[in-house]
Design a binder for these strands. Structure first.
Lengths: 247, 247
DNA sequence: GCTTTCAAAATTGTATACAATTATTTTTAT
DNA sequence: ATAAAAATAATTGTATACAATTTTGAAAGC
């Protein structure tokens, strides 16, 4: 029997995937330049075969681009690309919310969603200030469960994919409290939105659930715009922003 | 210099991809059973390495599922899965239309879109009846250009991906004129929708463009439902329907 | 001095051999 | 005869060697 959480026996391909992704996110490769397989494989201590497999997956994810003449390079993301990614994720998540409302969500999942809301409440009202890590992880769980409430396997997969895209994740800008103005208020606002979204789903109000989920994504978009326009220096703290390039 | 259209020098991986996809679509593998790499590679006349690469890509596309104990199997799609795929594609395409309208589409692309509409008109009004192949190809081009009108590279990629999913493509049910009732009228109805979508984009009516594109996808959904519920026998003619399984 | 041409070096794409796992069959015990 | 255990066969995962391209650099020509 396998361990339920983490600690699975990773094979070489999975190791390569994790290692490569973190190298890319950290900006270890010059963007626009082909990334050399032999050098990387030696650096990761694996052979080229599983490395290339991992590269293929990252191409599918959109983190790497295939070069016509052979090999891959790190993808370049403009501010517009990232804004689009956030918006598209919001639209798809809105559709998940609408599906959940129209079709009627599974009661067990709904109960679970409510308990996640409580977890977020707790994280926000710790005596010594906000429990930041707890918030991020519960926030992620909430967005994940919205996908599952839709009852659509395809929807779950698509939202998982979208969350992988750099900076499109619902928690992408929550990595550093200093980054965003009125930070605590922003988190509480987001949590109020979470609650209304879930209420709309529970009340079977499809269109409303969809609109609210989209509105929720606009918060992430606003944070992103603020970050890149007002605090470009601090923005470097956000993992994945190393991939951001000028138009 | 490379040939602009088709006939590129395919490498082994691309050959494997094409071959495997058609084998899968044709239902050559028992669903739910692991597909054997050596046998398939011999059948395609390529070695295992590029075949495995192709398999990885098909996993990313969703046509194959990875098996925990090793290897892949052909994915199973229920009617609900396919209905969801059509709906989600409609939502994303709607977002593309809205983006195009709100941001203002490129004039050259708009002109091209109009010429595609004319092509569809021509295909529909051939003296000897509808020019079916011309319609399908122009229809595909129209949906492709909607993605490009959005001006978002990510959007273009996502819609390309969605179109690959079995039966989510806008032309998926146009493979056989016998399948759908009032076939000619259905095509003309779709073409009227194409025109209104483009008009909304041109007039910068974002919400309207989005709603119209969604409505357009509902036509595909209705055709699918009609097909599976009323004419299950004829449905076998539709490529990809071999993957359809019971709940 | 700059471009073009050709050769050398480096890198990717493919095949294959081997190791690690998983599936199947045979054997053995109850 | 059935079930458990062990051995065997088959299959996937990984490494590596080789072939085909592409890139780089040097020499030659203008």
């Amino acid at each position: 029997m396998e361990a339920a959480l983490g600690s699975k026996h990773l094979n070489q391909t999975e190791k390569a995937l994790i290692g490569l992704r973190s190298m890319i996110m950290a900006g270890r490769f010059k963007t626009g330049q082909r990334l050399p397989e032999i050098a990387v494989s030696e650096q990761l201590g694996i052979s080229r075969t599983p490395l290339r497999q991992a590269m293929d997956r990252l191409v599918a994810e959109g983190l790497l681009d295939r070069i016509s003449t052979g090999g891959c390079r790190v993808a370049r993301f403009t501010k517009e690309d990232i804004a689009d990614a956030i918006q598209i994720r919001g639209v798809i998540e809105g559709t998940a919310a609408r599906m959940a409302a129209e079709r009627g969500a599974d009661p067990d999942l709904l109960a679970h969603a409510k308990s996640i809301l409580s977890q977020i409440d707790t994280a926000l009202s710790e005596s010594g200030g906000i429990d930041f890590d707890a918030y991020v992880s519960a926030n992620r769980a909430f967005h994940d469960i919205i996908a599952h409430l839709s009852g659509s396997a395809l929807m779950i997969r698509e939202l998982e994919r979208m969350a992988q895209l750099p900076l499109a994740s619902p928690s992408a800008f929550l990595s550093d409290q200093e980054l965003i103005p009125d930070f605590q208020e922003s988190l509480k606002h987001a949590q109020r939105q979470h609650r209304t979204i879930l209420e709309a789903i529970e009340n079977r109000e499809g269109s409303r659930a969809e609109a609210l989920a989209r509105e929720h994504a606009r918060l992430a978009l606003m944070n992103f715009n603020y970050l890149t326009e007002q605090k470009p220096a601090l923005a470097k703290n956000v993992p994945g922003l190393a991939l951001l390039t000028e138009k």
